[in-house]
């Protein structure tokens, strides 16, 4: 047996570098975020600004990638297996980020609003988005013919477009308890001041890098999973055959 060029795992030199970069930026975010000054309105709780808005925005990016990849898969000219796998990988990472959005938001809401959860348009639409993605991921796990599953999942992913749009504009369309878009407050003269903006921007970069790293690895894992699915039987057969030969060769 010769050595192999293709790594069997999901790591590579490039992704290792990306991972280190993501970890460093994330560490910087945590340090910056936790050392933010106490704000007059929210006390220490405004320190969540370094992670909560970046996580929520990254979640939109993840679903945008899912929808884009699904559309590329659906369009016959660009139909390739990898678009389907990328859509699934990005959606799964997106689901993790959505769960974190809900969790960090809830943890911030408890001391600030006095409750873990309010039925405001932003929170509700985020929750619905989360369930839509869970449904999509469940659909992807249903055993069925590969091409059929890919097509059906790609169609199902399109629902994420209106869901994300409604979620994003929920704070503008309805009067919500949740405050308006954090990025919109970056214009001069708005309430967020320098240190907060800096921490949040570093947070955006960190979460973006973490997302890219996770999605890249989830994608490679999906490729491996698919190969294992397709070749798994061959491998098992070969192993059994080898065992048989070994037994037969024994004196």
């Amino acid at each position: 047996m010769t050595t192999t060029e293709t790594p069997a795992g999901i790591g590579s030199r490039g992704s290792f570098f990306l991972g280190v970069l993501a970890a460093l930026t994330l560490a910087t975010t945590v340090v910056l975020g936790l050392s933010l000054p106490l704000s007059t309105e929210q006390g220490p709780y405004s320190r969540m600004i370094a992670i909560h808005p970046p996580i929520a925005t990254t979640e939109y990016v993840a679903y945008a990638v899912t929808v884009l990849a699904s559309a590329l898969y659906l369009w016959p000219r660009t139909r390739q297996r990898r678009w389907d796998l990328l859509a699934g990988a990005s959606a799964e990472v997106g689901a993790v980020f959505t769960a974190l959005t809900l969790a960090t938001g809830s943890i911030w809401g408890r001391p600030t609003w006095g409750v873990w959860w309010v039925w405001d348009a932003r929170l509700t639409s985020t929750a619905i988005l989360f369930f839509l993605v869970l449904g999509y991921l469940a659909l992807r796990r249903v055993p069925m013919e590969l091409s059929r599953r890919s097509t059906i999942s790609a169609v199902a992913a399109l629902i994420l477009v209106p869901a994300v749009v409604v979620d994003h504009y929920a704070v503008t369309w309805w009067r919500t308890l949740h405050q308006g878009a954090s990025l919109a407050q970056l214009s001069p003269g708005k309430s967020l001041d320098g240190a907060f903006i800096a921490a949040m921007l570093v947070g955006f970069v960190a979460m973006g890098l973490v997302y890219a790293w996770l999605t890249l690895h989830r994608f490679r894992l999906a490729v491996l999973e698919e190969r294992a699915d397709i070749e798994g039987l061959d491998i098992a057969l070969e192993e059994r055959r080898a065992e048989g030969l070994e037994l037969a060769a024994r004196p």
């Binding site: 969540m48 992670i51 993790v96 974190l100 969790a103 943890i107």
Partner: peptide, 15 residues
């Protein structure tokens, strides 16, 4: 603060 560390902790732990 408890809530703030909880928020950061949950995020880092989940990732």
């Amino acid at each position: 603060n408890g809530y703030v560390s909880l928020g950061y902790g949950v995020t880092l732990a989940t990732l």
